[in-house]
Nucleic acid binder design. Structure first.
Lengths: 65, 65
DNA sequence: CTTAAATGTAAAGCAAACGTGACTTTTAGA
DNA sequence: TCTAAAAGTCACGTTTGCTTTACATTTAAG
């Protein structure tokens, strides 16, 4: 599962801690998701979508076809 | 997390087992998600979206604002 | 170069997402 | 009504999302 969180963060000049705080998760969780260590839960994906005002599919990309 | 899986299934005359098989999960998992016992993972939500050719937001609805 | 902020990483633990197996209840057709 | 398929549920086990704490590394500004 790839994602554009790092870019979306950069566009807003946000740190991982800033994003984590806005999402209500830990900084390590944001870091792990950005690094592809694991996928976010669906509720967390929805939070990202609302925060960035984008569709989930515009932020996360499933590796499968 | 509400979802329209039961309706989407009914439109296609699919059983829970049919859907489970198409998604690559167990029948109990489909049942539990339909009954709101827990949320699907993001990868599973993507599989649903691809299967029904809909956006994730058109299938699942976050309870939060 | 120094220093602090930002990022990366790791271990231990908990909760939630799934699996399997078995069983009960509901639905629907003959 | 009888029966079989579908749906619902429970117990138990495994995996993964996420937390906390702690520390190492990178980045950037002075």
């Amino acid at each position: 599962m790839k994602n554009r969180l790092k870019v979306l963060r950069a566009e807003r000049d946000w740190t991982q801690a800033d994003l984590a705080n806005a999402l209500g998760v830990s900084r390590q969780t944001v870091n792990a998701i950005e690094k592809g260590k694991f996928d976010p839960s669906l509720p967390l994906a929805f939070k990202c979508a609302r925060l960035f005002e984008l569709a989930i599919e515009e932020i996360f990309e499933d590796e499968n076809e």
